[in-house]
């Protein structure tokens, strides 16, 4: 038994919307620092599963543990705290708060977590510089390109040092150059031991992950270990 708990263990997760079974007994585990892709046809339940794994939605059945903590036993405020301090999210588009600059967008979770605005802004500046966005720090979301906005979103997702990064088609709206930059940003984020689960339709993105999962009609049916996997 490993001393370090898995970043995520999901067992038999089920989610229904009315009579419709959207996620059908999905099970998976992700180890710290591991990168995993989740592919599947549109509407097969990928995003719903991602939201359950990120505690944004509650499963109707099944168990979910994040870093060994049973999510079902957490209170609402503990789940909020978990999202704030242990999880990071990147969505496909409209990721940024339009009323804030890139710098403020990135700093916001850290400011919320620590209450120290100046530290949060300094940390945001460092992250933006690292992602080649220092010159765009004071730009608001609507003047950033899609690729820049997604990299800002990645910076924001990792500012609190999450243990698990959940990305929902982060390159879905981008051209190939921008997608490459975002992918590089995500991989850089994972270089410090953060696990990554990325929902994608893009085989290139999936190919950069250590493990590739495929979802069909709400079930995880295919698991493919890539060349970068420790177990390969």
């Amino acid at each position: 038994m490993s001393a370090v708990p898995s970043a995520l263990v999901a067992d038999g997760l089920v989610r229904r919307y009315g009579d419709r079974l959207v996620v059908d007994h999905a099970s998976l585990a992700i180890e710290p620092g591991e990168t995993v892709s989740l592919m599947g046809a549109s509407g097969c339940g990928k995003t719903t599963l991602l939201h359950m794994l990120g505690t944004l939605d509650r499963p109707d059945e099944g168990h979910l543990a994040l870093e060994g903590r049973d999510v079902a036993r957490l209170s609402e405020s503990q789940r909020t705290e978990l999202r704030r301090e242990r999880l990071g999210f990147v969505f496909q588009q409209s990721n940024l708060l339009p009323e804030l600059t890139a710098r403020e967008n990135v700093a916001l979770p850290a400011w919320r977590a620590t209450g120290r605005r100046r530290d949060a802004l300094a940390r945001a500046d460092a992250l933006l510089a690292n992602f080649g966005l220092a010159a765009r720090a004071d730009a608001r979301g609507h003047v950033l390109s899609l690729g820049e906005a997604q990299r800002v979103a990645v910076a924001r997702a990792i500012i609190n040092g999450p243990r698990l990064l959940l990305a929902d088609e982060p390159t879905g709206s981008l051209d190939s150059d921008a997608a490459r930059e975002v992918l590089a940003a995500l991989q850089a984020a994972c270089s410090t031991g953060t696990a990554l689960l990325v929902v994608t339709h893009d085989p290139t993105v999936a190919g950069r992950c250590q493990r590739r999962l495929t979802m069909v009609d709400g079930r995880i049916e295919i698991e493919d270990v890539g060349p970068g996997s420790p177990g390969a």
Binding site: S77, E85, A113, G115, N130, I158, G161, A185, T192, G193
Partner: peptide
Amino acid sequence: MRTLAPVGPGPRRSL
């Protein structure tokens, strides 16, 4: 790209 050291939140937590 330079690797960033994780800088987690401070100890103060609040609702």
